[in-house]
Structures are given as structure tokens and as C-alpha cells.
Write a protein that binds this DNA or RNA. Structure first.
Lengths: 200, 200
DNA sequence: CGTCTATTTGAATGTACTCAAAAGCGGTGG
DNA sequence: CCACCGCTTTTGAGTACATTCAAATAGACG
């Protein structure tokens, strides 16, 4: 199955051709390693217990990445939108069954590249390594920042910060999931929102 | 200044010669890039605002890595002991001034390697890259796990988990710092400990 | 011994929680 | 188009955990 260039998010093309300087030939080769895949709302790209054997570029749609805690409650680690990559980092690199669920929240289009194909691509296009080691760095750095936020901020402050930094989330994600992401009970989030709107 | 092999933590030697298969010559070369440094209790290896231009192996002693939050309160990210590496990851890789303080808690011996020397070493000993990309992975993974803990566990549970997983910390680190690390007020930690000892 | 810091104890407060139920919203089928 | 069902969000009441402010006690160091 061929991937049609017109249907690909321009950011994808830009990332590899501009930022990482792929030649046209390299980019075309790189693309051949991907397979398009569509997943419907509420279905899963990945479940805990599975080994994550591919990276998936989220071309269109959105998803949530969560784990289950000891009591079986969902804990949302992050939401993914267009131009994000889906997967379970730890499982992908360790080759062991992972703990992450990736559930699709809107009918989505993915570009999936298997681990084998990615490794081939890496050998043929060494620039690829720069891309993912910088991605790794940013991911580690983002994790550290999120720890800080969870430790430092009150529920209300976490809500306000999210509103300020990623207001688009509120356009597409149900409040209950946002509450879970912020580690607030849905009832409490509702009260916080009530309090804030009545303040002014 | 030469580094005396006998004074180096055997784990350091083992890591590079065994785990990463450095030849004797490679290891000897690698060592020449390091400079020993001693820092006294309460002094700093690194302060916020400085650019982190080196990696430091903590050969002996211990340290705490912290940042200041918006209100100027210290937030301890982790403690470092023998066989850890000190620095500000983000600043090191970005080349920009960092946010981390690294304060020495016991008179310590470091082996310091500058960014330039490390880059030289990388070129001469390609195996080195494997080492730090796997270090990066583990660090990112550890960060994600800590997010989970902070979100999921109560103050008492966080305390008990630390007691179970890293009891040695309590031998060397003042309770106030442990409280800060666990994101608990020192008074609350004291009460938790009181409650738990009286339970039995 | 005196000073400074760390730890403990006391009392009052508040934030976010739990349990419970009502209201709102969206989709489906009659 | 309306009625019903399921799911999301809001509202209410009571509770618990950890906090703050304040002060006492204990420990470390010169």
C-alpha cells in the first residue's frame, strides 16, 4: 500500500527534509518503510502486556496514553494530537511487554513504521539517529518538568497552567480525561472551574 | 594531574571495561580525559544560571540535585551517591544556563570530564555512545516512573516505598531533605514516622 | 556551655477527596 | 420528533490527609 504524499501532514515532510536535511531520495525511501493505518474512536493502538514493535506518526486525530495503577485506575500520561508519535518507549527499546495503553479518541490516521524497518532506515539514512536521540532528550526533559509540576502546583494551578499552555486540549478532550491527566477527581475539577468562572 | 587507578571506584572500571568492552588502551586513554576534583560538604558542584560544561563521576561522597520553584522553595529531584553522575542534563546538551543546583552533602571526590574531552573520547571510542544513549533511556524511563509515584501514592506510601527501595538514603541524608524529596513537609514526615513506629 | 540547626509536638485550617444524587447532553429507536 | 438510555458533568455534604503557624525539645558543633 502506497502512501500518498498529499495526505501527509506537512510538518512530517518539513521535519525530515528541512530540520534533518533528508534529500528527496532519502525522504522517498524513508516513506516506503511506513504503512498507513486508520483506527476508529475508542479502539486501541496498543495495550498493556503487548510488546511495542513499531513507531506510529499520528497524521490526523488524537489519542491518550495511559497506564493502570496498583488499584486498576487509569492514569493518563499525555494526550497525543497531530504530529505526535505513538508508542510505548520503554517496551519498544527493551523488547519486553509494556505497561502503556494508547487509546484513540477520534477516528485517526497513522503512519506506522516497524522496528525492523526503522533499523534499516537508520542504516541507510544516518541522519535519522540525530532525530531520535534529540527526541529522546526532549522526552526525558519533558518528563522531568512534569514531575516538577505535579510536586509543586495545586490542583487549581495545574488546571490554569494547562489552560494557558495547551488550551486546544479543552477543545477536543472530555473533561474527565483532562481531570485524570491533571490528577484531579472530575468532581473537583468541576468545582475548580465553577469557582474560577464566578470569580470574574 | 594524574588519576590513580587504585582510588577509582571499581564499579567505574567495571562499567567501561566489562559492560562496554573497552580495551585496556581505550580505558587508559579515556581516563586521561578526566580530572579529579574534591568538593567539601555544603559547597556546590553546579548552581542554577551556570552552563553545565562537564560530566562528573561521583567517586566518593553524596550530593543532592535540586531546583527552586516559583516561590523560591527548594525541590530536590534526587540524591546522588557513589557511582552516580552529577550535572544538569538539559543544560549540558542545550549549552544554555541551567536550572539545577548540585550541592555536595559529604566531602566528595569527583572525576570530571569536560564536554570537549568527552566529545573527543566519543570519536576515539565509539562504544562510549552506546553507554550514554542507554543512560539517557534509563533516565527518561526513571523520570516517567517517578511521575507515576508522585501521582499515585500518599505521603505515607511514598515514605514506605523509599524506606523499602533505598533504605541507605536514611543513613546519610537528613530527614528534612528526604521530606523535601518526597514532597512532604518536615513536620508531616515526622508525624508519619511517629505514627508508623507506634503502630508496632 | 551556648548557639545554631534539625526534629518533634500541638492546634487550627484548608484543599481535595469520597459517597451520593441530580442535571445536562448525545445518540438511538420507536 | 419525542422518549429513553447511557454517559458526562455538576452539585451537595461530610471527611481525611497534609498543610500552616507556633513553639518545645533534641542534637551538632565550635
Amino acid at each position: 500500500m502506497e502512501i500518498e504524499l498529499e495526505k501527509i501532514n506537512p510538518k512530517f515532510v518539513e521535519l525530515f527534509t528541512q530540520t534533518y536535511g533528508f534529500t528527496e531520495a532519502e525522504f522517498a525511501l524513508f516513506l516506503t518503510y511506513f504503512k498507513p493505518k486508520t483506527i476508529s474512536k475508542k479502539d486501541y493502538y496498543l495495550r498493556a502486556g503487548e510488546v511495542c514493535k513499531s513507531k506510529a506518526y499520528l497524521n490526523k486525530g488524537c489519542a491518550r496514553n495511559f497506564v493502570l495503577d496498583d488499584q486498576g485506575h487509569e492514569r493518563i500520561l499525555f494526550f497525543a494530537f497531530e504530529d505526535w508519535w505513538l508508542g510505548d518507549f520503554d517496551s519498544y527499546y527493551s523488547g519486553k511487554p509494556g505497561t502503556n495503553y494508547v487509546q484513540i479518541l477520534e477516528d485517526s490516521e497513522l503512519l506506522v513504521i516497524s522496528k525492523e524497518n526503522f533499523q534499516k532506515a537508520e542504516k541507510e539514512i544516518p541522519k535519522l539517529q540525530q532525530w531520535y536521540s534529540s527526541k529522546m532528550l526532549r522526552s526525558a526533559s519533558a518528563s522531568r518538568n512534569r514531575i516538577e509540576e505535579m510536586k509543586t502546583l495545586s490542583a487549581e494551578e495545574r488546571y490554569l497552567k494547562l489552560m494557558e499552555q495547551q488550551p486546544h486540549i479543552f477543545q477536543r478532550i472530555p473533561l474527565q480525561y483532562i481531570a485524570c491527566y491533571l490528577n484531579i477527581e472530575p468532581q473537583s475539577l468541576s468545582r475548580i472551574r465553577h469557582r474560577l468562572t464566578n470569580k470574574h
